[in-house]
């Protein structure tokens, strides 16, 4: 399932122009509500709304593009939540959203709340994006910062750490994209019995688990400078630490997945993974 290239382009352009370090620092104080309005002006909140209802008529893979970029650029405000809730509810926008019956998790207090699987799906993309940003910044920093007379990235120990980090980011990206594709193909799951549930559960489980090693390595490779407010690594690591507990922690999802796997047995579990 490939996303629309034009959309990708539009998103990259708006986000890279708008979400500068200065803007992000300011948004920390102001809340950055104006970013949502900017995105709404070009219809990014309506990516999932049908064209006949005035939306963009995109797929869930298009929604991944927007949500992943929000994580990767540390977009402030609630564009991702608004986009997904409009996708679930069509042109009516936010309102009463049917809540899935899986009794785990809750959303960050300041965000509008989504039904559990939709929220978990969304967070997985944002987390994959934030992790990608941490990887890019770490690779760049280790190419520039010199110690012992050479760039850090020339040391094999550092290379091995960054390669491991890249593997984790790849895993988050792949699991999240798979989940968005499954939701496109088989519909947003309401509960554990629905066909796309497992892919969503896997995505959030993996992303929540990997948030720890990803942030650990990225901060580790940056040394003390990454620990400062000014440097801005925190725009990507702090959301990861928050989001990993949103809409179900790793262990919540893992337990649900595991209960099913054990109850259904190996054949049915394999079938669910490959259907």
């Amino acid at each position: 399932m490939n996303a629309d290239l034009l959309l990708l382009d539009t998103v990259e352009r708006l986000f890279s122009e708008q979400l500068t370090p200065e803007y992000l620092a300011e948004a920390e104080r102001s809340g950055g509500a104006d970013f949502l309005s900017l995105a709404q002006e070009i219809g990014l909140d309506a990516v999932l709304v049908a064209q006949e209802e005035g939306g963009y008529g995109g797929s869930w893979s298009d929604a991944f593009v927007v949500a992943e970029a929000c994580g990767r650029y540390a977009a402030p405000g609630s564009l991702p939540e608004v986009m997904v809730s409009r996708g679930i509810l069509g042109s009516r926008g936010t309102g009463d959203v049917p809540v899935g019956h899986v009794p785990v998790g809750h959303s960050s207090a300041e965000q509008p709340s989504l039904p559990l699987p939709a929220g978990a799906l969304l967070r997985s993309a944002q987390m994959a994006g934030a992790a990608q940003a941490l990887l890019e910044r770490s690779v760049q920093y280790c190419g520039e910062r010199e110690q012992f007379g050479r760039p850090l990235g020339r040391f094999q120990a550092v290379q091995q750490q960054l390669a491991e980090l890249a593997g984790y980011v790849a895993c988050m990206q792949a699991a999240s994209q798979r989940a968005f594709a499954e939701v496109q193909r088989r519909g947003m799951p309401a509960g554990e019995e629905d066909p796309a549930w497992l892919a969503v559960a896997i995505a959030k489980c993996r992303c929540s688990e990997l948030a720890h090693p990803v942030t650990l390595i990225a901060h580790g490779m940056h040394g003390a400078i990454g620990f400062t407010e000014e440097f801005g690594l925190q725009h990507f690591s702090r959301p990861l630490w928050r989001w990993r507990a949103d809409y179900g922690r790793c262990s919540d999802w893992a337990q649900a997945i595991g209960r099913h796997a054990i109850a259904r047995g190996p054949e049915a579990t394999w079938d669910a993974l490959t259907r």
Partner: peptide, 15 residues
């Protein structure tokens, strides 16, 4: 135990 098994299934699915 269920959580440990589920985490492994999740790794499998992501791989």
């Amino acid at each position: 135990a269920a959580a440990a098994v589920g985490a492994a299934v999740a790794q499998l699915g992501a791989l």
